[in-house]
Simulated scan of single mutants.
Amino acid sequence: MNAKPPLPARPDILCIGSVLWDIIGRSHLAMRQGSDVPGRITRLPGGVAMNIAMTLARFGLRPAVLTAIGRDDEGDELVAACGRLGVETGFAYRSEDLPTDRYMAVEGANGLIAAVADAHSLEAAGDKILRPLADGSLGSGAAPWGGAIALDGNLTAALLAEIARSPLFAAADLRVAPASPGKAERLLPLLGHAGAVLYVNLEEAGLLAKVEFPDAVAAAEGLLARGAGRVLVTDGGRTCAEGSRGLGVISGVPPKVMVARVTGAGDTFMAAHIVAEKRGAGREDALQAAIRAAAVYVGGEVPA
């Protein structure tokens, strides 16, 4: 009988959600609908969970992803690329019949023009990606995972609702981000989760609260009033805010930078904030660290 392969080393943090290939077309020119301009097209590991994990790895942590990756050639290439980037995929669900997911975006000097996310395999896999949290590999119902988890909104609404009430997540430091404004309302079941910290942009905050907020500070105050325990709200290059129940709202203004890229900026903000807090930073310092890292990323550099 063949012995099972040994489990990977216990990670510092789990990143649950989309791990896929990012296919990004970028031009240094401003664009509009119908533009046909010169630029560069790249294919890199991406997805909300992967973007967060890559940033965490650059900051010296050992992240593992819980996701769905196909057993196709693209999936094997993706697993190899993740390993080179310091991201553990040994706990991921590898599907025989589901293809590896992809994301395609077009960006110009004036920001994101359009994007299409094909995360159908992640959605089809459902709760299979959570098996390591239940089978003893990373935790169980009797001894749930007690560390940090970065959770992205590419999961189905049903699975996110299950996570919100599951004992497997009862002890976790749960950091939550929508995958896009179109999926923000999927996070409603997690709004009142005792261990959840929500990372949203201004538009996503409005969709969650069903109110149009004028700025990030108002959005943070509004989400706290609707039951959130802790939220961070970004608004592009404008004021960002962090709100904690019982402690009020603080804010910070990003430095002005030349925009070189936007896809992944919010994920970088979230990862940098998590790392700062794991290193013992207080609220103000952690928010400023996240703002600086996101600004560096948008400017085209790699945060360190």
Rank of each mutant, 00 (worst) to 15 (best):
S95A: 09
L78F: 08
D73L: 12
E77S: 12
A114L: 15
L85F: 06
A68E: 12
G86P: 06
E74Y: 15
A114Q: 10
V87Q: 00
V65G: 02
R102K: 15
E74F: 15
V65R: 01
R84N: 05
L98Y: 09
P99M: 10
E88N: 09
L98E: 04
T67P: 02
R71C: 10
A64G: 07
L112T: 04
C82P: 12
E96G: 10
E74C: 10
Y93C: 03
N110P: 10
A119G: 05
Y103W: 11
E88P: 06
E74A: 14
P63A: 08
D73H: 10
R71F: 07
R84S: 07
G70F: 00
P63C: 01
V79A: 04
I69C: 07
T67W: 00
A105C: 06
E74P: 07
A115R: 05
E74T: 11
D76H: 04
M104K: 07
D72C: 09
L98Q: 01
D101L: 10
D101K: 10
L78D: 08
Y93H: 11
D97P: 08
P99S: 07
S95V: 05
A114S: 13
S95L: 03
L85T: 11
A68H: 15
Y93K: 01
Y93V: 03
E77P: 06
A68R: 11
V87S: 00
V65W: 03
V87T: 05
G86I: 09
G111M: 04
T89L: 04
V79P: 01
V79E: 03
I113P: 04
M104H: 10
Y103K: 07
V87F: 00
A68G: 13
N110M: 12
D101Y: 07
T89R: 01
E107R: 09
A81K: 08
R102Y: 14
R71L: 15
E77M: 11
S95F: 11
R84P: 05
R62T: 15
R62L: 13
A114K: 09
D97S: 12
N110F: 12
A117Y: 08
V79R: 05
R84T: 12
G75L: 13
A80W: 13
A105N: 03
R84V: 10
V65E: 04
D76A: 03
V87R: 00
T100V: 04
G83N: 11
R94T: 09
V65M: 03
F91M: 13
P99W: 07
L98M: 07
A114F: 08
I69F: 10
A64E: 04
L61V: 12
T67Q: 00
E74I: 12
G70H: 01
G86E: 05
